[in-house]
Nucleic acid binder design. Structure first.
Lengths: 348, 348
DNA sequence: GCAGGCGGAGCAAGCGCTTTCAGGGCTGCG
DNA sequence: CGCAGCCCTGAAAGCGCTTGCTCCGCCTGC
């Protein structure tokens, strides 16, 4: 039903080849001819069929982004960053969620993507070594975000540093018992970020001569309720922490909620530091380690476009800076006093 | 470079037609032949080129979603809802941002989408009457979310009711001066939601016999900082409101932040109600009017798929329910006392 | 005045699939 | 035993573009 290039050619009295060239602004088309073609195309409301154009040209003018989930703040911000660059270049954005191993395998093998995208950005998609190799060996340009891949370009945050920075901040305030709320330890493959941040936490503790206490390290599921539960468990310990490092702002929000419910003053009774600099972190006055999430999406997109345009270059590993943002949820540890709830416990 | 259907045919010793049928599970293929084809395809790592398949079949197996922005909570949730349905049907998701009139025009005319998607969902894209007609006349199946369109199926919230419900809640608590924080009045076309919510607010006030005060209605830009600014301006009024209805939770967060900075007790000195039931609203104990955002995305996707599968049916108009969620940021108005800051002002 | 060059346009060969139509071997029934 | 009919398979015609190659004038440069 829609007008095809042949219709335009007919109306303009030229060949389809000329229509194609005229419409795409290629040289070797006389101005008067081009004008006639443009006029005819406009009159017919003609738009080139993307499939046909792609088939013939070998390109799709689309780039794909694989994320585990779309809804969470982090991923939507990365998507927004990618989108900005992609739209700027007049390309389209295909979003696919990859949250299980079948999906990772499909992504790595290029299935489901062939003829769909010119390149793909995988955000926090925990590919196995083998899958990464498959992806790299594939002809499909790919960029990783959040996770390392030797043979692929990637955009990373130094998560060890993130963990260390946050921990050092709390140590510098005099805290010695610092809770860590993050992801479950038994899942290193799916998502290596928590493990790295935990390492930074341990390094900082070690540098301060503090023995890590495994009971202070809990899973928070990277969600608000998860953070609240973890905080609850931490505060129920015989010797509860005076500060909590949550590996994401969302978990930190959960901790803050629980603290409020318990009637604990923040940072008076409990200090909390998060990671991300979530949109609402500032509104909550949350001390956090910020990372340029949207910027990571942009960088990844730029990297990918460079690979697509320039062909296979040496895989660049980009490390973006993180930065401690001290706000109101962290303060000096009270030397003489553990949080009120445990004080009660101690009295009884 | 990737294997083509011809390679598979050759390896399996059959024709391309048979490969195509075998791989897509069509009938009239002998089991033994199918097995041979599958084996060959697996060995070669063959995947059909989406463009070629689409060109030949006329379908793209992709559906498009147009949003003004990707990053904000609301849109990312709608996207997630659409994604769930789309992935479930083994389709792909193309995301495009439409934030200016050129973009709206392109969307309506189907440019940039031809040969890319089988249908499109437009979320809060404020098309003109003419653009909506163009879109409807187009052969491209489309569903609207958030904004009404007579000749197109759409998924809506009764925003008048949202405004009324929230306002009635505050009225029932004894508030009579209620600030309204939303979008600028002079932009009715781009985004009709604020206008509708404002109408509900006015209706509730009228029912309570209260004369609306234009000075109480301010723009909040649907952002946290915008909400904070609006709250600041409201509290600086000679007769400041004792409650604020923010048209989004994000703006409500801004109000809460400002209240805390000003040392105002919530809800003691100031009640705040939002709209959305944002992920962190519960953590903040924010009273709000919830709407099933993700569900709206799902519904829209289902509606679109129905249109695509069944052809043009009568455009369905789906209204999803909103619901007041009373939490801790709203409380009784103090009859004898305006918020502390204005009390100071009154004293001087 | 003529050859070489160049800008402008068309022809036609794909791009890699899907799908219609035709055909060949069998089975089953008369 | 013969023919209708059914299964399975292949040949080939597109789908709607892009692009390499060819061709045709006309303008330079010597």
């Amino acid at each position: 039903m829609p007008a095809s290039i042949g219709d335009v050619a007919e109306h303009a009295g030229v060949s389809v080849a000329t229509v194609s060239r005229a419409l795409r602004g290629l040289p070797n088309v006389a101005p008067s001819t081009r004008a006639r073609v443009l006029e005819a195309a406009a009159r017919l409301g003609y738009v080139a069929d993307a499939r046909a154009a792609g088939l013939a040209s070998g390109r799709t003018r689309t780039i794909g982004v694989a994320v585990p989930l779309i809804g969470p703040w982090f991923f939507s911000q990365v998507l927004a960053g990618v989108e900005a660059v992609v739209t700027d270049r007049d390309l389209d954005l295909l979003v696919l969620t990859v949250d299980d191993d079948a999906g990772r395998q499909r992504l790595a093998s290029g299935a489901r993507l062939r003829g769909r995208v010119d390149g793909v950005i995988a955000v926090d998609v925990a590919l196995t070594e083998e899958q990464r190799a498959t992806l790299a060996a594939n002809d499909l340009p790919a960029v990783l975000v959040g996770l390392r891949g030797e043979d692929l370009p990637c955009v990373l945050v130094d998560n060890v540093e993130v963990g260390r920075t946050a921990t050092e901040h709390l140590l510098s305030l005099g805290h010695t018992r610092i809770g860590l709320v993050g992801h479950a330890r038994d899942d290193p493959l799916r998502f290596s970020v928590p493990e790295e941040r935990r390492r930074g936490y341990h390094e900082a503790l070690a540098a301060a001569g503090i023995e890590p206490d495994p009971r202070l390290e809990l899973d928070g599921n990277f969600s608000i309720p998860g953070g609240a539960e973890a905080a609850e468990a931490l505060l129920a310990l015989p010797e509860p922490p005076t500060a909590i490092l949550a590996m994401s702002d969302e978990m930190a929000f959960g901790c803050l909620r629980l603290a409020r419910q318990r009637g604990l003053a923040v940072p008076g009774d409990l200090s909390v530091v998060g990671v991300d600099d979530h949109d609402v972190a500032a509104a909550w006055d949350l001390t956090t380690v910020s990372q340029p999430v949207q910027g990571m999406g942009e960088q990844a997109a730029e990297l990918l476009l460079a690979v697509i345009d320039a062909g296979a270059t040496a895989p660049a590993h980009l490390t973006v800076p993180s930065r401690l943002r001290v706000r109101g949820t962290t303060g000096p540890a009270k030397a003489d006093r553990t949080p009120s709830r445990s004080t009660q416990d101690a009295i009884t």
